[in-house]
Design a protein around this nucleic acid. Structure first.
Lengths: 188, 188
DNA sequence: TTTTTTACTTACCGGTCGGTAAAATACTAG
DNA sequence: CTAGTATTTTACCGACCGGTAAGTAAAAAA
């Protein structure tokens, strides 16, 4: 956390914005430096490499998302209610923190495909988030509120991808509603 | 369609594979050339620029997708049935043509954000596809089979994004089912 | 047979990339 | 004030980027 105005944090904020705009491999270190108002070499004083800088942004962003999204799920003891709250929190978080949404949207193809080592830490952090969501869905399945033929991990991916791909607030609500109905509707 | 084995087509196929793997701006012309077994300069003999090469791949891919996905919708006169067939065709197309799926997955953030001129043609072609899908959803709404509070364009985006983000065949089916149920479920 | 066009190669260009070494400046303790 | 350390700048590196210039061998057209 430390000082909000420290050089290191200025770099991190500039990096987050730049990564959200152009993706990890689409942005140059000099662009980030210029955005942060520092010389490029100074970034390497605080971060060993571009990859590490990105990973810190990624980690911090997903931590924030997780904290916000699971903040209220603990107070519920019915899994279906946990899920409902999670969806609502997801929408509210993404609405207020658009950069996080855009970073996840930007990099999801890299998470999904590449077995490249440069993406493995990033993917692992993502899978940890997905796992926390899918276990709530799993719980709702055991309550018989969600059909057994729904795969929890696929459903968690769907929630994350669909939400992150949406842009306006209204679109988010609309998509959240479709997914919710799709999850809870019992097959005939 | 000309000769399948022509040099130009070899380049196009290599480009499609490379773009699917690394994205338009993540792949170099020399990589494409090497994949196609030609010299880099020869690519510039057939295509004026990387951007144009990508656009031809993009255009062709979305044409193929559209052709396949709307092939059977004309035979139905109930919009809800059109939509059902569309979802099924989408799944079958993406299963057999994974590269197309990966290209769309890779570039969707660029379509969504950038007002950059390099992406405008690409985005326009995408919007044409989305428009064809959303008009079917609009039709199903007027049949009162899909709730009025569903925004057709958001729903079309959801279908495309969610399907393109999915990987295995089983995951595709699972996600297609959730979206279908979410669309047709009437609000209580 | 001469001319033109097509298909393709080699060699190169200016520019940008991620990253580094070392000098200069600012800060802090004695 | 001074020595040392933490921070920041300047100047640079080799690799690679998208793209081009110039030329060539063979085929097609005249």
């Amino acid at each position: 956390m430390s000082d909000k105005t420290s050089t290191r944090n200025r770099i991190l904020r500039a990096a987050r914005k730049a990564f959200a705009d152009k993706g990890r491999d689409g942005v140059s270190m000099s662009e980030i430096a210029s955005e942060a108002g520092v010389q490029k070499a100074l970034i390497y004083y605080y971060f060993p490499s571009k990859e590490d800088l990105f990973f810190e942004v990624w980690q911090y962003s997903l931590d924030e998302l997780e904290d916000h999204v699971f903040a209220e799920t603990g107070s519920e003891n019915v899994y279906l209610r946990k899920l409902k709250k999670l969806l609502r929190s997801y929408i509210s978080f993404i609405t207020s923190r658009d950069e996080v949404r855009r970073i996840m949207e930007r990099e999801r193809a890299n998470i999904a495909s590449h077995p490249e080592s440069t993406w493995s830490r990033v993917r692992e952090r993502y899978l940890a988030l997905r796992s926390k969501i899918s276990s709530i869905i799993e719980g709702a399945k055991s309550e018989e509120k969600i059909p057994k033929d729904v795969d929890s991990e696929d459903a968690a991916d769907l929630i994350i991808n669909a939400m992150n791909a949406s842009q306006g607030t209204d679109g988010l609500e609309s998509i959240g509603e479709i997914i919710w109905r799709g999850l809870v509707s019992q097959d005939k």
